[in-house]
Simulated assay, not measured.
Amino acid sequence: MSGLSETERAGCRMILKLLSNIDLLSLSDTVTNKMIVVENVAEATETILSFSKNAEELLRRKKVQRELIFKYLAKEGVAMPPNSEKHQLVKRTLALWSSGKATDAESRQEETDGTKGRRATETASDIQVSKVDVGFDPQVLGQQFCQWFFQLLNSQNPSLGQQPQDWGPQHFWPDVKLRLLSRAGSEQMDEFLGAELVSLRLLALPRAERLLLCPNLEPHGLRTLASPHGLVLVAVAGTIHRDAACLGIFELIFGLIRSPLENNTWKIKFVNLKIRGQDAVEGSEVAAPALSYNSSELQLLYS
């Protein structure tokens, strides 16, 4: 009899879905000491869940790599440092499950299946703003891109009570890079590479940290540059809020490149995000934050 609670079973099932078929079948053999032969991955998953003594034992299995647990936590809105060791991720996952705040996997799947067709229609009108034909005026592109991006990102914040829009790695190039610099008391720099990790880390801002990013789309808060090679830089400043409190300001630089294989949709190649807490800025800056980057500094990013 499995020692997993229903919440733990749902969470473990989501993590097991991240394993390759080969690793999943191998893990089933390990858990059962090859005493049970399974016919497919569905049987392997249920066998692993049924014969695991407890959730911690399953999470500590070699096949359940730290990267898989990290991805699961990020999808649940739990932001963890990218250099976290596996035992730290296991401990945080068990705490999440015991708190009862984990998303139910079956309910999430039902919601996904039930809204897939509707969201496909939404993406045609809302998300495709990122590839609007603007006669290629970089400034117009920058304004429309920022309106689309921040509406999409902020919709993930549960405190707004909105239906989250279709956020995900599909909006990024596979080798996208995120550089996150935060100055709130102390300075911290983190880097993330790859569409899934970058997407998940940015998602954690509104979902886990309950932040709202409000861009300043006036001329002193938004600047765009286009290189001769197709890269467009969009730099924008804005304020960061949680509920009614203004926590500080941000400066965000996007590198955008068209994807010829996806109807020339603009996709994100890199993201540089700098966050300053309110104790690190002047009050006048918070009211209407302006970019600290000039055109010459932005052009250095072309190289």
Rank of each mutant, 00 (worst) to 15 (best):
A79P: 02
M35P: 00
K17S: 04
D190T: 15
L153Y: 07
K17Q: 15
V286A: 03
Q165A: 15
R183N: 15
A120Y: 13
E56R: 04
K267S: 15
E85T: 03
P169E: 11
E57M: 00
I275T: 08
S303P: 04
S107D: 12
Q151E: 12
G11I: 01
I253C: 10
E67S: 03
T103A: 14
T45F: 04
D279N: 11
S159M: 11
T7Y: 11
E282A: 09
Q88N: 13
I48E: 02
L89N: 04
D104L: 08
G135F: 02
V132E: 08
P215G: 14
R66N: 03
K63E: 03
M80C: 10
T239Q: 05
K101R: 14
A79Y: 02
E297M: 02
T93S: 06
H171T: 12
E282R: 13
D175S: 10
Y293C: 10
S130F: 02
S292L: 02
V234F: 06
P169K: 05
L89R: 00
S227I: 03
S84L: 00
A204Y: 09
S5F: 14
G135Q: 02
P215S: 15
A120M: 15
V132M: 12
A184K: 10
G11E: 03
V31R: 01
L200W: 10
L213Q: 01
V78A: 00
L212A: 13
E106W: 11
M189H: 12
L59D: 01
S20M: 02
A10W: 08
G161A: 10
S159I: 12
Y302N: 03
V286T: 13
D166T: 14
T121A: 09
R118G: 09
N54G: 03
E43A: 04
G117L: 15
P81N: 09
R201Q: 15
L261I: 10
E111D: 13
K116H: 09
G238Y: 08
L211V: 15
K177N: 14
L202I: 10
T103K: 15
G135I: 03
A287P: 04
S50A: 08
S296M: 01
D126W: 06
S28H: 01
F270W: 00
L178W: 08
H87M: 13
K86H: 01
E209D: 08
T7A: 10
E251N: 06
A237E: 05
A184I: 09
R242Y: 05
A10F: 00
A287D: 12
K131H: 04
G100S: 11
F270S: 00
S26R: 07
S295Q: 07
S99H: 04
L233M: 06
E56W: 00
E297D: 06
K71N: 06
P82D: 08
K63P: 00
K53D: 03
S182G: 14
E57G: 07
G255W: 05
S303C: 08
E39G: 05
E282K: 09
I15Y: 02
H171M: 07
E110W: 07
P164M: 15
W148Y: 02
T115W: 14
M189W: 14
E196H: 14
E251I: 10
Y302D: 01
F250N: 04
K131N: 14
L211N: 09
A184R: 13
S107F: 08
T93N: 00
A235H: 05
G238P: 06
H241T: 05
D23S: 08
R119A: 12
S20K: 05
K62V: 07
